[in-house]
């Protein structure tokens, strides 16, 4: 059973006086497996938040269905095992950190003794124990994000949904959140998080889904997603006779001589094979062959250009 199962999900918003239709999400199919960290990436306005809001019951889909833990998302009971951190979260700023967590705990009917213990553990985990009795209006953005995560974990959920948990944070803040997410995975939780910051996703996700313009463009394991798209291959070899070097230069995208070595960059496998053949003929020695894979960044840019 998949933790999240999304089938043909679409959402249209109607905006303005004439109720113009805006397709925020089109025919999304997606599943998230138990225990994985799933990264949901896409540029601004791609439809990530829209998807997350549908999953958490904040908005209703125009068409399509979704299941969490195998149950329809309209069933509120599934929310017992979900933790959610919205995008740019705003909280009751008149509450102190402890009151705040206590309030959410009561929405789950967790018993009192357990509440107190859990609040302390969570505050400790997000490094806010010192600020237990401080009103949220005094919190910095990073602190708010962290208390938001604590809030999402108050019910010890099986699935955690985080919408752009790292946006607006400094590198230390991002690392901290990344660590927390990894720790969730260690505890056996499934994490679904959205982001448009690729390095975050690259580092911790098991699988990613890429959303552009409301449509899912790609989904899969990060390395397979990237390795199928070798951007270039870097070959380095020992020096050879000039004729051979000349023919390699003609083939390659880039070729330089440095430190008594030849560095060649080719764009595809056939070019690579030919270069290797020439090196063999010229009795050159192959020193290294490094496929330069595409980064997420490259993928992203290509998709945007492609549009």
């Amino acid at each position: 059973m998949n933790i999240i199962e999304i089938k043909n999900l679409s959402k249209e918003f109607r905006v303005g006086f004439i109720m113009k239709k805006i397709a925020a999400l089109t025919d999304l199919n997606l599943s998230v497996e138990e225990g994985e960290i799933f990264g949901f990436i896409g540029p601004n306005g791609a439809g990530k938040t829209t998807t997350v809001k549908i999953l958490t019951g904040l908005i209703y889909p125009t068409s399509g269905k979704a299941w969490i833990f195998g149950r329809d998302i309209r069933d509120v009971n599934i929310k017992r095992d979900i933790g959610f951190l919205p995008e740019n979260p705003y909280f009751y700023d008149y509450l102190t950190a402890r009151e705040f967590l206590n309030f959410y705990a009561r929405l789950f009917s967790i018993n009192k003794r357990e509440i107190i213990a859990r609040i302390d553990t969570l505050l400790d985990m997000v490094d806010l124990l010192k600020y237990k009795n401080v009103q949220l209006r005094r919190f910095s953005k990073g602190m708010l994000q962290r208390i938001g995560i604590a809030q999402a974990l108050i019910n010890d959920p099986k699935l955690v949904i985080l919408d752009e948990p790292m946006s607006g944070l400094d590198p230390i803040g991002r690392t901290m959140i990344r660590d927390i997410i990894l720790r969730m995975k260690d505890q056996g939780k499934t994490v679904f998080f959205s982001s448009h910051i690729l390095s975050d996703v690259e580092m911790i996700c098991d699988r990613v889904g890429m959303l552009f313009n409301g449509r899912l463009k790609d989904i899969g394991k990060l390395d397979t997603l990237l390795s199928t798209r070798v951007k270039s291959i870097e070959i380095s070899a020992s020096l050879m006779d000039d004729i051979y070097m000349e023919s390699i230069k003609r083939l390659a995208a880039n070729c330089i001589l440095m430190d008594e070595k030849l560095f060649v960059v080719v764009n595809n496998e056939t070019q690579k094979d030919e270069v290797l053949k020439i090196i063999e003929k010229g009795n050159g020695q192959l020193i290294s062959l490094i496929p330069r894979r595409e980064t997420l960044e490259d993928l992203f840019l290509k998709e945007i250009n492609y549009r």
Binding site: K53, P89, Y90, L107, I161
Partner: peptide, 14 residues
């Protein structure tokens, strides 16, 4: 408006 409702609706509450 303040989006505080987001976290509440995501909890098991009608």
């Amino acid at each position: 408006e303040r989006k505080t409702i987001y976290t509440i609706i995501a909890k098991p509450i009608q």
